[in-house]
Measured scan of single mutants.
Amino acid sequence: MASQGTKRSYEQMETDGERQNATEIRASVGKMIDGIGRFYIQMCTELKLSDYEGRLIQNSLTIERMVLSAFDERRNKYLEEHPSAGKDPKKTGGPIYKRVDRKWMRELVLYDKEEIRRIWRQANNGDDATAGLTHMMIWHSNLNDTTYQRTRALVRTGMDPRMCSLMQGSTLPRRSGAAGAAVKGVGTMVMELIRMIKRGINDRNFWRGENGRKTRSAYERMCNILKGKFQTAAQRAMMDQVRESRNPGNAEIEDLIFLARSALILRGSVAHKSCLPACVYGPAVASGYDFEKEGYSLVGIDPFKLLQNSQVYSLIRPNENPAHKSQLVWMACNSAAFEDLRVLSFIRGTKVSPRGKLSTRGVQIASNENMDAMESSTLELRSRYWAIRTRSGGNTNQQRASAGQISVQPAFSVQRNLPFDKPTIMAAFTGNTEGRTSDMRAEIIRMMEGAKPEEMSFQGRGVFELSDERAANPIVPSFDMSNEGSYFFGDNAEEYDN
């Protein structure tokens, strides 16, 4: 993207840094990872977990959730003011799984939030270390993106479920800051804005008074975040219109849905970061690795190297396929839920299948599930090659597409044709070009129609051997075009429920 120079890199967003050079960025990201790792080690000690239990991804998720809940100030305040039966607002906890007599047992633990905050700050040299908290939120978000298709949420806001490739980060909490905003897809931002506008339509006082002023500035800020994701002048001009509207209503909703559809071809720039579970960072720190000293990046080879040398386990339900569970977590670790499966298959070195073909449910185990038949197995999170994460949407291309997802959002900077089903997408653009945004709409449609099938995206960008740390010898991959490109292809993934 041309304006790259004016933006802070995501590592800076990730670490609240002012302008830093590459070495400083690597050190501050490393410091953040160190903090998460030290916190995780301490929690495993508190909970008396064995090494194996500490490497269980379900335990990692519970521990991450506990610290996120302990620092969720708004919710904590709300819980104190609106006490609900049987919930102690000062405590947080969740299921911890232990191996007892050759069987997995679930144990519900409860801790004072104050105590968890103390352990977290102690692991982070006394700081609140917001960057580390956001990092864990993005890992949870990436896992949700890989596990669930947001059909219901899309339909509720009037969008087409086939636009799911635009929904990265749709389950990120509001408090995820600049680093969170960077990884949100165009569809996620559109959905947040539509929800806001709908509230304004239904509630006369939404934009009024002292609160209304705050609401208005939040609305304009979200519009600017979305505008910054678009790469064409016409899309940005249309966002200006939406932002400046005196009284946002149905016309703005129409414009936003139009823009979301246009992003299936004229893709937005959305950041991709490899955020790993805390149970990967903990053992690495415990083994003596100093992330701050060595430096770390979320968008280069580092996460690949770390996963190459990590042992992570997962509980497996009786009829689940461990290899499929591994694929789910591998995609989440690489922030690749909406990437082209052919690119992923090449990088991973084994075939990556669409969601609907995987015999696996989510990673988390519900409290009512029976533990008797639970097994555990090693997650295979290694890769054959590594590639640089991208934040450009890439230019655009036609490809055989599917009944489910009709476009992709690249996660890796790797040369390819970008699949999208042009006739299906263009069919949504018939007729409606009147109104105050008509010239911009016409211009956007013209650009979409001009998108050429034979153009290559990320020209000359390749993948790298894991021994090639400096990215000196790019390998331009070859793809098996007979395979499906979309992950949520004609899909039956479970729906995400809060």
Rank of each mutant, 00 (worst) to 15 (best):
N321F: 08
D127H: 15
K325M: 04
E469I: 15
A22I: 06
R348N: 08
S269Q: 05
I316G: 15
S392D: 09
T15G: 07
G132T: 03
F420H: 00
N319L: 02
R204I: 14
D480V: 06
G209T: 12
S392T: 03
K91V: 07
Q149F: 11
R384Q: 14
L47N: 13
L110D: 07
R19A: 07
K77S: 15
L328G: 09
A286N: 06
K422V: 00
K325V: 11
S217H: 01
T147E: 10
G30D: 09
G209N: 09
A284H: 13
G356I: 08
A373V: 03
T390V: 15
E11N: 10
N250G: 03
C44G: 04
K87N: 05
S392W: 04
N395A: 00
S274T: 03
L143W: 09
G17T: 05
A332Q: 05
T390I: 03
A27G: 06
R446D: 14
D240K: 05
R416A: 08
Y111D: 03
K351N: 09
D290R: 09
L306A: 04
M66W: 10
S359G: 15
V190K: 10
R121L: 05
N492F: 01
M440V: 15
L344I: 04
A271L: 09
Q311F: 07
L61W: 05
L358A: 08
E115M: 11
S217Q: 02
W104N: 05
L266Y: 09
T157M: 09
Q42I: 05
N370C: 00
M456I: 02
D16Y: 05
R199P: 05
R19D: 10
N395H: 04
Y148D: 06
L133D: 12
T171M: 03
R355L: 03
A263E: 02
E14C: 08
S457F: 14
Q12M: 01
A260S: 06
F71T: 06
E455T: 02
K48C: 04
S28C: 01
M159W: 12
P283W: 08
M481A: 03
A123M: 07
R236A: 12
I116H: 12
S60M: 02
D72T: 12
E73Y: 03
M426G: 00
M43H: 03
L49V: 00
T215W: 12
N144I: 03
